[in-house]
Design a protein around this nucleic acid. Structure first.
Lengths: 181, 181
DNA sequence: GCGTGCATGTAAGACGTTACATGATTCA
DNA sequence: TGAATCATGTAACGTCTTACATGCACGC
């Protein structure tokens, strides 16, 4: 447990109320997609470990409905989370295989390149739409929680960045089309 | 060796001529910084493994100068690289701890938040300047190699994206300044 | 001759993905 | 009753970082 960013992401989400591993995965995909992701293989074992360390606690399962294991943050968990917030963040780490391949485009079969570019464009389009949707929702609400402002700013950043990716991809599709012709 | 993207990045760099592990690290930092990074702990062992598998070969060391071990790509390496180029890229994976923390800004000590934001701004400023510099250089050259066009496009994307980050950070600094006052 | 940067490398351990396994519930 | 999706989890493996260790060479 040196960095264990995963556990902190989980703690952050639990600030708003108890969640299951499944919920957590979904929320990360929804809220943090443009700058973060996690897999189940990370989340479930991490939750277990966190419970053992007293950062979270398992709620008694409600009789009705599907079997789900909801976890709640403990006061110790909150403390740990605040400590994490007050240590300097690591620098950004990213890996875009598409761009790496794109650099060597002359060695790629043209139809493959087209496929990759379209998939990239689409991923960015989806993220862009999702983020715009979130922004719409957030701007409808009167500022209530102290985080509201910051989350909205992050969403706006996501929109700007994804728009840059998206527009680049659109233009590149046009440019490649012209090259072929 | 399932994905082993690192080895492919190395192969790509070796297309332009023999390089040492040190060179490779530097080049990645220079050319790919805005969408990729590697550490020595990845590169040196990977080079060794690749030599064992015949993807690269160690050049006899030149007598003069510092001790350096330059590797050259083999024809097998080139084949492997082309195959990799023609398999669909993974989706982007990224992790921006700064943004994750930013979401919980009200729980961060104001002076810490300021520090983090400034560090973020500066990283983006550096990347932006570096990329602009590369663009300048590249636009001076008459299109010679077939990659030229694609590399330039990638650089331009990097500039757009980093500008978005940078400007966001600048505005956010102003906004936080006003909040304090 | 001393510091800085060049240069190579290893080992331990943390991190993360993937494939697999399991089974309940909802809805058509 | 069958398909889709909800939901949890593990094991194996692959990836990556960090800390450590070493030493040369170039410039001052």
């Amino acid at each position: 447990m040196k960095h264990a960013s995963t556990s902190f992401v989980i703690l952050g989400l639990l600030l708003d109320g108890p969640l299951s591993g499944y919920d957590i995965k979904k929320l990360i995909g929804l809220r943090f997609r443009f700058f973060w992701d996690e897999s189940y293989g990370q989340i479930y074992p991490e939750l277990k470990r966190m419970a053992e360390n007293g950062l979270v606690e398992l709620l008694p399962s409600e009789g009705s409905g599907r079997p789900r294991k909801k976890y709640r943050i403990t006061s110790g968990g909150l403390e740990t989370f605040k400590q994490w917030l007050n240590t300097p963040p690591e620098k950004e780490r990213l890996r875009m295989e598409f761009l790496m391949k794109f650099l060597y485009a002359p060695l790629i079969e043209p139809q493959n390149l087209e496929l990759y570019l379209e998939a990239f464009r689409q991923r960015k389009a989806e993220e862009l739409n999702m983020l715009k949707h979130v922004r719409e929702e957030m701007e409808g609400i009167i500022e209530d929680s102290p985080n509201h402002f910051f989350i909205l700013q992050a969403v706006k950043l996501g929109i700007d960045v994804n728009r840059a990716y998206f527009e680049w991809a659109e233009n590149m599709k046009l440019a490649l089309g012209r090259k072929e012709a």
